[in-house]
Design a protein around this nucleic acid. Structure first.
Lengths: 338, 338
DNA sequence: ATACTTTGAGAAACCGGTTACTTAAACTTG
DNA sequence: CAAGTTTAAGTAACCGGTTTCTCAAAGTAT
């Protein structure tokens, strides 16, 4: 059998309280006793049972991460950041793929409730009222990554999406582009959808370029939707010289469709994506994109979550910086005009 | 406070044993009592504490998945399979990124031991003796995915790597290629390295093509190593018409390098990869590759693991089928010769 | 009506730790 | 040296369930 603290106590001729104290570095024993206990522990190969410990602590040192899918490169990069930092702080993480079939979020929340996780990170999840009520009842701290909710007490970590989209489009304009299409995320998504499109519109407006409805098409952030969006875009508007996509995957899908049509990139059409996932530099030509600090998003989120868990205080939200990552898919029309 | 089984018992005027029995669908109570208990549970919003339950059951309904990194697309696809199926069977999964910095496997195994997980899935992990000893002491069932060990009692789930590599190279040969380079994984990797290279050699041999050392270069399965490997390959041997890479990422890196050199794919050089990760169809031209059933690998692994957990029996290993996924990176030289 | 079986339900031990409380011994201090 | 303080270490309650054992009441057979 696996030895318990009682076995150690018996073997070392001390009480279980003493073993516990040695184990936790408390006071109340002589050095001689300490050595004896430590030796016994090693001899017996004793390891404390974290679960039994929870019964007193009320801490499982475990957090749940709700993400659409680990195969989503954006999500998995954030998860990587979460996991690395959580381990460093002594926490383990449960992965919860919510978009498997239908919305499994509720089912998962029930599981996490029963498993008594200490906190939850929501990545790219829109919190509806049903979730909110359950979370309320669970009394568990939450942090959002790249998501929003109307509750101001729930902290989030994200990029300034509107500004980032604005910067992307301004970048295209500064490179001499005036006829810029956009492949937007779904309009239901309040941040990656609406905000990024708003940034696109604002940039056009500020530079005195008229917004045209026919130049915006919608996808679901994934590759295939990028392809079909590009097809639609090319049908609706022949005059486009550049495309801003609300995700790298859609940008790559769009590029792929364009290349299949024999369109040269960036000579004929320029592309700029959003996310800076690994994929964006693996393709040819490498995608210019709006970079989000993916690992950092995850890390900051857990950091905040752990603060909430361990202090019980609320924590402020945080906007992390984005950047334009210049690669090879945007042509500088100005230079060519000289 | 969160209600406990005692609160429910007091409120319903029954003993805690009775509440427990109702909860677990055991016998020993009248229908009237049952209704009363159920109503009290609902009124109070009681939810059982899975952790307290563990103390008796000795089951946490939790498994650990050790993977190099969730940002590794092969690994994340397997993880997705694991997670989906685990949830279905009522298990939660701890993600353990082992390749963060240095080898964190040992550290993680200690955590999993203390958290009393019911079993472990190792993805792409070479089990050294240190791990083996610890696992032995933990007395926890293990299943390997795409990995091997000399212990015949540890079941694995994987593709027949040698045969799959053989098939890939044969496919190239059947398309008329004779001058085939290989970008191999590291030789330390017993399966993805050694076996796949063996398949390459065997296929050449069977078709009467001489093996040339200068046509094999080594990478680490990742993108960048694919690029540098291609550079080396092109320096060492000008006459190559096709390249077999031991991973899709390396194939894509190699293609990227080739395209940067102005080499046309597949007209001048053909490529075949290995894994069939999402990336392989997102690039242009889309990569022909050896497909592994990634989700299935994960699913089969948990399925076996749960059998071991719940029955205590050992389980047999399994080889899952691979397939050649034809896309656009292999030129049929025969046709062009007509 | 009596003896025996079945059923409903409670009491209490147990799982493996932590911790508040207690006590005995050792050490200070005036 | 007596009284007070500190220190080492033990005892037992507790966390939230499950499960074994026990027993009273109800049901059944003779």
């Amino acid at each position: 059998m696996i030895p318990t603290i009682r076995d150690v106590a018996r073997e070392a001729n001390v009480s279980i309280a003493t073993v516990s104290r040695v184990l936790n570095g408390l006071t109340g024993y002589s050095d001689k006793t300490k050595q004896k206990v430590i030796k016994t522990i090693e001899d017996m190969g004793y390891h404390p049972n974290a679960i039994a410990r929870y019964l007193n602590n009320r801490r499982t040192q475990t957090i749940g991460v709700m993400i659409p899918a680990v195969t989503n490169e954006f999500a998995s990069a954030v998860l990587q950041g979460v996991e690395e930092y959580a381990l460093e702080r002594g926490y383990s993480v449960f992965v919860c793929n919510t978009a498997v079939d239908g919305n499994q979020t509720m089912k998962y929340l029930q599981v996490l409730r029963e498993k008594k996780i200490d906190g939850i990170v929501f990545v790219c999840e829109v919190l509806d009222n049903e979730h909110k009520n359950l979370l309320e009842a669970m009394k568990v701290p939450i942090v959002l990554v790249s998501s929003v909710t109307d509750d101001p007490h729930i902290p989030y970590v994200r990029v300034d999406d509107k500004q980032a989209a604005y910067d992307a489009v301004r970048y295209l304009i500064e490179k001499g582009h005036k006829d810029i299409g956009m492949i937007s995320g779904s309009q239901e998504d309040p941040i990656a959808g609406t905000l990024r499109q708003q940034g696109y519109r604002d940039a056009l407006y500020d530079k005195g370029i008229a917004f045209r409805r026919s130049r915006v098409v919608y996808g679901d952030f994934h590759y295939d939707s990028g392809m079909t969006a590009m097809e639609t875009l090319l049908k609706q508007d022949k005059g486009i010289t550049a495309v801003f996509a609300a995700s790298d995957e859609m940008a790559v899908g769009a590029m792929n469709y364009a290349m299949q049509q024999g369109i040269r990139i960036p000579e004929e059409i320029s592309f700029i994506g959003y996310d800076n996932i690994r994929l964006s530099r693996m393709i040819y030509p490498a995608l210019t994109t709006v970079g989000q600090p993916l690992l950092q998003l995850g890390q900051e989120a857990v950091s905040k979550l752990i603060t909430m868990i361990e202090t019980g205080r609320t924590v402020s939200s945080q906007v992390v910086p984005h950047e334009i990552v210049e690669r090879q898919t945007v042509r500088d029309i100005c230079i060519h005009n000289i």
